[in-house]
Design a protein around this nucleic acid. Sequence first.
DNA 1: TTAGCCTTGAGT
DNA 2: ACTCAAGGCTAA
Length: 978
Amino acid sequence: MSEQNGPSEGPGPGPGPGPGWWPASQSWKTNSCTATSSSTSSTVPDSSASVSASCTTTTSSLATTTSATSSTSCCSSTPGSGPSGTITAVRSSETGKNVSVTTINVLPNQDMHDGKGICKYLTGQNGVTVSVVSSCGSVLGCGNANVASTTGIGTSTGTQSIGIGVNVLSQNTADDEAEDSDVEISKIDFRGVNLRTKKKRDVSGSQSGEKIGEGEVEDGNGCYDGNDASQQQPERPMSWEGELSDQEMSSNTITNQDTHEDTSMEGVQVCGPSPGPMEQKFPIKPEPDFQSNPRFTFGSFHDTGLPLVHGQQIQQQRNIENLEQTQQNDLPLLVGKLLGGYNSSTPNHSPVLNPRHHLTKHSHTRSQVPSPDSAIHSAYSVFSSPTQSPHAARHSALGTGSPVPSSSLSLSRHSFNNSTSSLSLSLSHSLSRNNSDASSSCYSYGSLSPPTHSPVQQPRHPQHHQHQVPQGSPLHLPATASPVIAHHYSSSAPGSELSPEGHAATDDQEDCRIPSAPSGISTRQQLINSPCPICGDKISGFHYGIFSCESCKGFFKRTVQNRKNYVCLRGAGCPVTVATRKKCPACRFDKCLNMGMKLEAIREDRTRGGRSTYQCTYTLPASLVGSSASNIANDKLTTGGNCSPAPAGNEHHYPARHHSNHSHKMQVVPQLLQDIMDVEHLWHYNDNDRMTGIQNAGMNPSRNNDTMLLGVRSSGGSGIENDTDSSVECSSNGTTGNGNPSNRRDDRSCSSVSNAGNEQCAASISSSSQINNTNGNPTQHPDFLSNLCNIADHRLYKIVKWCKSLPLFKNISIDDQICLLINSWCELLLFSCCFRSMSTPGEIRVSLGKSITLEQARQLGLATCIERMLAFTNNLRRLRVDQYEYVAMKVIVLLTSDTSELKEPEKVRASQEKALQALQQYTIARYPEMPAKFGELLLRIPDLQRTCQAGKELLSAKRAEGEGSSFNLLMELLRGDH
DNA sequence: TTAGCCTTGAGT
DNA sequence: ACTCAAGGCTAA
């Protein structure tokens, strides 16, 4: 069925508030992306760039699409080139039809204005113009995007669709244009695609609206709804669990090389339709589909018949040429897009909206839609401008008028695709909307009990809540009662893993399925027969991630939907039982969360029916599988049990999310710092990122040495960030339990494509390096560029995601966010790299367990950079920088406001000051024996900047010298998290 | 506001 | 057709 929803219908609440609708410690009332429309045409100078969305008709047309792509070269503009040097629709030599570089495949019969696609023409702060074609529709739902009318350029329906993309152009633009573009950037809202058809609803009903802001005082039990006070007190950390849906992401991405219809990949999704009054007023959570799926596909320019994924058939020489072109700093653009996309607070004036349901029901069916592997597509070129110092970079954007900010990570996939090279790259990263990027929804309850025990739902913080649990409840076994496994249970289809009949999980689910229940009684039945883990009442079913009673289900729903922010004036710890559950909603809600209820399970758009689409991966380190319940409890503490598992092996670095007044640690860790920590996982690759990528790349995770590049040896140590463990991943790639086998296949295919940018990058880069040894310049390897792209793409996306969730960052305007990120990305990456190298003196841990010593660096000509990094790392080690300090420093670095282009420098400065205060407070409290630690930490920042400068210079030099291998290594550094 | 029941709709 | 987990409704 096709969606009849027009723009007015709103994608539902779609406009999710920002990066997380559960605004991390900011405000419950996040801005929602509003407005839909505004024709971009007004903002698109024809002379500057053109964005054309070509629409193909469904799948079959894709073939033609591909052919068309080969012929086109676009984005010929070079830095400094004027507006004229922009992309415009070009003609396919083969078809004679207009082919636009920036195109997106959308399905026919849909106009851009219906919210299914949009073209954006953006001008970055650096005068860089980005033309973005966005289509929320993606493969499934987009219709014919009549972009031409929108952009005033390009082609319209007659154009052959050539993948998607965003043209990233560097060019000088007039200030006014830049402003307009900036506005446009701010309007961009990357909206995911709704998995379910959302019927037109009038959400503006009185229900939520009236409740919002009531600020009612609860009963006299000491709890009150802090709704109004939500802005006065830290909010619950935003849950990123709904961030990216692999399914949705992948649904919009290439599913299969063979299924070319999927190659369309939707472009940047511009802010969805204007949310209904309710949504705007009470944005609940950014639509997981949407917010998590900023499906920006940049410049995915398919070459003829080239597989989108690997691009092995790319003309190597062209790649090199393109590489040069790519050095233009497109980062600002991409970042802007990313940021803008996340920022739902920015009004969306896009004429085109992305109703959530656009992708829902479609002829392409579910096999494409719910692919668990969200893919992100973005364009990038991974080059920094080496020649510029960090400081210079910080001011280069607008100040110099240079079209190319030299210090930015230039990410323009299109850059690789543009011109004649037609590098066909599929940017598909598997980015789950979950924190963990996992692909499956999993039950977070803990486990299996011996026959004599009921399954247990382990509280995340047993120490805090055990007393609340009805004693003797089978749900709360003694810690030693039985081996407990945190199960991954697909919420989408719980029964598939934990079927009522106790069916065994599929092979794919082998690791995460729940062991068989005692014969005769299905595990599910056992669970249902157990008391609600929250209040002890009768369980009515699986609600929001756990088995709970109807009342707790309703309570959780109300609390979330109405954005209640209860506060327990008794200091928390109130018992929550059937008799007392009404007494303290704060503690009840807290317990709901602790027991595993998931915020993202609450549908932003309140769509009814259907299967749950939220995903949650509760990942346990393999070491804990089969361990005792106490271990599980510990693990729950570390992972938070909230689908935001700490990076493998980082349990001790990522403390569980602390609810206020729960932990003694909170006395030491300022709330702000904790909030920052709570989103730190977004910075990292998770197991899903790693494993899927490795798998798809045909790599053996244990064979890091095989993938090590440039002789960089595998450290294998337990690093701070890049430790890999054999976490139990349930339903990786979304193969768990939901969907039929065929769907799974699609999902896998999709993920296979999507993950091409992860570990595969390393592998391919490594292979590139090997090629370098034999054939010369590795950059000529077909996979080289694409891998670099993937690396940078993924890395950048992670960073942006992280940034957007930072409590302090969210208050900053989009423009300034972009600016700050542009100015600090290098520092952030290097800092991350150095921090994780603290445990390996004399070595810099690059990625995937690979490390490089100074001696190796010398041989590679990277001594300068590595030496500085080692020195910086030594200082970190000497200062015993811990995780909190590390995350705080990153934020401080990010918020460095000494840049002239900030529009609201005071706000930035104020934010940084808060971070500084938090850090100071923490260091003083935590390390009283080191009174000068705070100052010393700050003194390291200049070192970091100098190191970055060295790195950039080196990068530039290596690139100029064509030393691909060295360049590879640097790219690995960029990659950061492995 | 709670909580039980109903409706919805994707997945099986 | 059925399951079941969403949201909605409404009496208490």
